[in-house]
């Protein structure tokens, strides 16, 4: 069964129909690249998946679990102890400027861990140890929990090649470095599907390569990804599946070979030609 299933997703902004019924599915570990002209609804689609926008109707199913069914209840994508379904990397990075790189990556995990810590403390309290022993055990628990989060953050920083920048602040990094941190931050919570919205569009051309390389590197790690991009080489070489969107519909979808090698729709042909 597919990891992600999107069925007939629709979204209007006022009277403009932005998504006119989007359906697709994605298997675990696959990379889906979405291409299309600006204004075709790519960002809106990602935002609906990430619950930043509420679709009007349709279904979003991850791992057999209905996250959205267009009904009155749009389920929160994450209720505290539940696993994070979607991660998102923005065009403008959106790092937290007041936190250093390490804290940018650990913040969300630490906030989550505080809940676990509380539960752990209650268990320790129930054990009726002496005050001193209990305090020691609590300290240890805290150290283990937060230590693991930090270790993981350093691993991720290593993966995006920025281990030496752990204590720097976002304003001290180049755009490409900031985007790599944003990727590490998104990965820290182990989302099942990681979405990228034009991750290199805000970067100088010489910096796009390092970011694309990191994204390609994730492919080997079983990360399921949805990448919106105008980088046609990336789309061609790194994706398992391509969707071409036009005016809020999926105009064409298939493997890179099918979409680039033998496009069926005239619109797809025109788009590819214009990109070259």
């Amino acid at each position: 069964m597919a990891l992600l299933e999107v069925k007939n997703l629709k979204k209007n902004f006022g009277t403009t129909e932005v998504l006119k019924g989007i359906s697709f599915s994605l298997n675990e570990g696959e990379v889906l690249t979405i291409i299309g002209n600006s204004g075709s609804g790519k960002t809106t689609l990602l935002r609906c998946l990430n619950s930043l926008e509420r679709a009007d109707s349709g279904e979003i199913i991850v791992d057999g679990k209905v996250l959205f069914d267009g009904g009155t209840v749009a389920k929160k994508q994450e209720s505290a102890d539940e696993k994070l379904r979607f991660g998102m990397v923005f065009q403008n990075f959106n790092l937290f400027p007041h936190l250093n790189i390490l804290r940018n990556i650990t913040l969300a995990s630490e906030i989550k861990a505080k809940k676990t810590l509380k539960i752990g403390y209650n268990i320790i309290n129930g054990e009726k140890l002496g005050i001193k022993a209990a305090r020691k055990k609590k300290k240890e628990l805290k150290r283990n929990l937060f230590g693991a989060i930090e270790t993981r953050a350093y691993e991720l920083l290593d993966r995006v090649g920025l281990k030496d920048k752990a204590k720097a602040y976002p304003c001290q990094l180049s755009g490409g470095q900031q985007q790599r941190v944003a990727i590490a931050r998104a990965l820290a919570l182990d989302p099942e599907i990681l979405c990228f919205d034009e991750p290199t569009s805000a970067l100088d051309p010489e910096l796009t390569g390092e970011v694309l390389k990191v994204i390609k590197g994730l492919k080997g790690c079983d990360t399921t990804m949805i990448v919106v991009t105008h980088e046609m080489n990336f789309a061609r070489n790194a994706s398992d599946k391509i969707i071409f969107m036009s005016d809020g519909v999926i105009e064409e979808e298939g493997t890179p070979e099918e979409v680039f090698g033998n496009p069926k729709s005239e619109k797809t042909k025109a788009f590819i030609k214009q990109q070259e």
Partner: peptide, 24 residues
């Protein structure tokens, strides 16, 4: 963007203000 980054990381409204917005 700061609110959206917090939201996709699973922070609720209170946590977003406490850890992201108010310090800035």
């Amino acid at each position: 963007g700061q609110y959206e980054a917090s939201a996709v990381l699973g922070l609720n409204k209170r946590q977003t203000y406490r850890y992201v917005i108010l310090p800035q």
